[in-house]
């Protein structure tokens, strides 16, 4: 399988920080669903943002960072503008903060089409309406004209998914797409995303702190700790994870119907922060 994205030894250094936020991370992405899990501060969101080149102040370095033949490190901002939104896009965490509060939802969805393709307003509107329908919004005509404060969180996140998939990108980065949602709508939003991603053959990077979620909706999982990938494992085999950090995270999760004794607590080992060989 031809990889869409190849990352080799990616490091990210924020100005003023004593150490790199991401330290020589390597992975490839095909037309598959890749999960990146870790605690807050492990650098997982930074990886996602670095891939989109959304970190203007940070210093990026890598041996290879290519997306569909484009060297992302060498690409000019002009080139990036043509890639972002059209061939790679990003679904953000909270629709409350990531939708523009003073513009109608539908217009925001249609904007991507207007930016990246030559078409009339009418065509863009029709495409946006069709996409709203594809994310199972029952009355797209009505929702098109609503403002973000008039819709629920679950619907907002579906609108965000519609917006990001409308331009038929090859790679979508979903940064905690459902952690702001209630459990009753979470599965629904995830299955809509999953269905669209599979049908269109999009490469998905799902960034999450939730091991349950990535186990469910990804093919492969990278586990990050302190800026490094400590383990790469098929999602189905997460139970047989070898790294003590992964095992600790799995054990710390309370389970429905589990024993109610004290939860096993993670004992952090400084060795986890040391460079190590991960078979990719």
């Amino acid at each position: 399988m031809d990889p869409i994205l190849t990352v080799r030894d990616l490091s990210v250094h924020y100005p003023g920080a004593p150490v790199c936020a991401v330290k020589s991370v390597s992975f490839t992405l095909g037309r598959e669903r890749l999960g990146i899990v870790g605690e807050s501060g492990s650098g997982k969101s930074t990886v996602g943002r670095a891939l989109m080149r959304l970190l203007p102040d940070a210093k990026l370095s890598a041996q290879t960072l290519t997306f569909e033949g484009v060297d992302l490190l060498a690409a000019s901002e002009r080139q990036m503008l043509r890639l972002r939104g059209a061939r790679m896009s990003m679904i953000l965490q909270d629709p409350k903060y990531s939708l523009n509060p003073i513009r109608r939802c539908g217009e925001q969805v249609a904007e991507g089409v207007r930016t990246h393709t030559r078409c009339s307003k009418k065509q863009a509107r029709d495409k946006a309406l069709a996409m709203l329908k594809a994310v199972q919004i029952r009355n797209p005509e009505r929702v098109y004209d609503l403002y973000p404060h008039e819709i629920s969180g679950g619907m907002g996140q579906r609108i965000m998914i519609a917006m990001m998939l409308l331009t038929d990108p090859d790679m979508v980065i979903a940064d905690e797409p459902t952690s702001a949602l209630d459990v009753t709508v979470r599965l629904q939003v995830l299955s809509i995303l999953d269905d669209l991603v599979r049908r269109r053959g999009i490469g998905l990077i799902m960034i999450s702190h939730d091991l349950n979620l990535v186990r469910n909706f990804c093919d492969r999982v990278l586990i990050m700790y302190d800026g490094r990938v400590v383990e790469s494992i098929a999602a189905g085999q997460l139970d047989q994870a070898q790294h003590p950090y992964t095992r600790g995270l799995l054990a710390a999760q309370p389970r429905i119907g589990g024993g109610r004794g004290p939860l096993p607590v993670l004992k952090r080992d400084p060795a986890w922060s040391q460079p190590m060989e991960i078979p990719v």
């Binding site: 605690e39 702190h209 710390a252 309370p254 939860l263 607590v265």
Partner: peptide, 13 residues
Amino acid sequence: DVSVQAEILNLLM
């Protein structure tokens, strides 16, 4: 995070 959540839940118990 889940790892920290486990510590706080244990503490509360």
